[in-house]
Amino acid sequence: MKRDIILAGVGGQGILSIAAIIGTAAVNLGMFLKQAETHGMSQRGGDVTSNLRISDNEIYSDLIPIGKADMIISVEPMESLRYLPMLGPDGWLITNTKPYINIGNYPEMHEIMAEVESINNHIALDADAIARDLGSGKCANVVILGAASPFLGVSFEELQEAIKAIFQRKGDDIISMNLAALNAGHEFALSQIKDH
């Protein structure tokens, strides 16, 4: 089993928490992992990305080769498109539809969504709204992770365990909030796949 995952978003949106959860699950399964992060200048509200690679076998490069990613997981719709050259022919695009607008020339939403929908394998959901409905507005990134979970090659239970481990120190409320967010995203993805 091997998954090459591009995580995308805007500085400060918490893509590294998604990486941490998948990473913990993978390591608990005894898999190899490499995860290249963006630190520094671009974190100041610029576009950020992380290359997350998990595999049963040794991983060489910290960077995913262009056109070889299995999926793009994005917490922001325009950002999900920025990395399309990285995505392999059968790859999945999982993205939030809630835009993060901090530039004057942010494109029209319908144009962005048309591009997202032109990708064969895609799941698009308003993770912010779903998280808000659950009463956990800060967990939009975990909702997105939930939506990606059917394609990760890591079992759902293992992701739940990872969330418990990572948020252990923050207490039971935070854990159950994140588990609910994971679940909501998961359910959404399953319903989409059925319609597919």
Partner: peptide, 17 residues
């Protein structure tokens, strides 16, 4: 090189701010 599809034209730059 075997890149995936191009970056769509609608994608704007997002410099740090």
């Amino acid at each position: 090189l075997t890149p995936g599809s191009d970056i769509p034209k609608v994608v704007a730059n997002r410099p740090p701010s």
